[in-house]
Amino acid sequence: MELALIIGLDTLNFTLGLLLVTMGLVVIFGLMNVINMAHGEFFLLGAYTMYMVQQAKMPFWTALLFAPILLAVIGFLIEEFVIRHVYHRFIDTILATWGISLALKQAVIVIFGPSSQSINNPLPEPVEVFGVVYPGYRLFIMGVSLLLATGTFLFFYRTNIGLAARGVIANRAMAASLGINTRFVDRATFAFGAATAGLAGAVMAPIMSVDPQMGVGFLIPAFLSILVGGTTSLLGALLGTGIIGTSSTIVSSIWSQVVAQVVVFGLAIVIIRLFPEGLTGRRK
């Protein structure tokens, strides 16, 4: 029973961690139809922000503020100088963001070196939940993930700005003719997506090995999650990360992480093949 509970918590932990990382990807892919290959590096920069905050002996939580702000600025600049030139060329967005990914990762290597940095765990005390002892910081991550997902949902589906953003995606020309500044919406959405990636990086940094390659590891499961769940809604992201997260945790607890990667990938391919628009996607 206790084992089942721990596996359950692990599953939830992995899934919510994945959801945290996937959020920005969903916003940028689902709302802007841009496949952001640099998402992993946005995540990476968020993690290094946490590292810098720690080096500067500043309190842990300031990184949770600085990382999204830094990444929003970077996202804004990248949108302005690169992304906006390729909106109408869908495939090229993959390539351009891949180039950004390469350059950003290398910039991190130049500045911080290729080796891995360790971050102190800000909440080292384990916590007892439902009768099992579980690392406190992991529970914190789960909370942040839930907050971010709920916040993002409310922002895009319950506010006027969110409505405007979705309107621009649905029909750019018409939204513009209703007085909506579509360029501003583009910039803001991309910056928002980048900021959530930065936040995810900062939050996850204490439980990861922070090195220049850390972004890639999350990129693939994050992409598979949104393809499995469907790109058009946040609900799809929830479902996708749930499936990928659950199957990964269970398979790796039975066999090994390598087997889990292969099995989960195979599962994802089958689902994507059978439901090309994702499980929640509508057929066109």
Binding site: I100, A103, Q106, I109
Partner: peptide, 17 residues
């Protein structure tokens, strides 16, 4: 190590312009 940064930038330029 600046080489890869340069290559990434060249790649972006090739794709965009």
């Amino acid at each position: 190590s600046y080489w890869l940064m340069a290559l990434g930038t060249l790649f972006i330029a090739a794709v965009v312009v």
